[in-house]
Design a protein around this nucleic acid. Sequence first.
DNA 1: AACGCGGGGTC
DNA 2: GACCCAGCGTT
Length: 348
Amino acid sequence: MQPLEQLPIPLLLWYREHARVLPWRQDPTPYRVWVSEIMLQQTRVAAVLDYYRRFLQAAPTVQDLAALPEDALMKLWQGLGYYSRARNLQKAARQIVDDWGGVFPNTYEGIRSLAGVGDYTAGAIASIAFGIPVPAVDGNVLRVVTRLTADPSDILAAATKKRITAALQQVIPTAQPGQFNQAMMELGATVCLPNGAPLCEKCPAADFCQAFQQGRTGEFPVKAPKKPRRIEKRRVYLIFSDQGVALRRRPARGLLAGLWEYPNELEGEDSMSGLFGLTPDAWKKVTTGKHIFSHIEWHMTAYTAQVEPDALPEGWVWADRGALERDYAVPNAFSAFSDAVAQRLGYF
DNA sequence: AACGCGGGGTC
DNA sequence: GACCCAGCGTT
């Protein structure tokens, strides 16, 4: 008997005892499950909880989400990262309203057709919210299965994911596919941990886990190495007037798309000269900051200047302290400067 | 198939 | 400092 065939019964018994209480598990409607799954993409449960509560309060139905102003939407997502998820979430809400009569699609293919919903998320929603017996293969599941079967395949390879999906399709309990998929992820998140530190003594599958039985848990999963981050040195300009601090909107595509930022440039660029009639010696260095993205490191040095509020460049705004907190979604990349800005704005 | 896309917890 | 997370869309 293969390890995967032995898995469902002990896994489901274990999950019955150890499932965490999570808000989206309370009342697993398609909308609530969908919002949670989008937020949980590449994001841990702990990071999502507060965002989820605020989001459901601001947009309790798909119609509310479809009608939400873009700035309000981005403000709700501020700090969570991967901002295209929020835009796709609203795009999909409008798909549901316009193309599905406001009723959430109830087939795997219908769900899969929504913006921002890939194979994993479609499987998760279909199984959890509709009881459709399809696997939901995320990073947790890939780790659990490759350890269970001592599979040396690269889990980042599409062929591996495809093969494991097909194998799970053969063993998924048709009566409770949502419980099974959630149990797999719960096991990965709480017991079959990454970084070579699994808690095998607590695992309901230890008796037939090939990696554990062979004393090789540290060898799985196998992943191809990632390419190193590039480092960008940036100058950040904290520009104050009696109207507040200057913000500008980032481009609609690419990194931190559409969010607001303090004007900044790569070291060596010269985009600030001529603005506000400031001479180079008008800038005073105030502080430094570092922010690490998945693929880039920003090493930032902040400069400040006081200017007259007129002659603000096109697309820039003055934000006072209230507007900054209430109206503008500024990514956490700039959080190193929020104290300095707040302190300065506090004098108004 | 490779790459761009956040932010933070954990070891 | 390295890893990696309830991945998806684009090229």
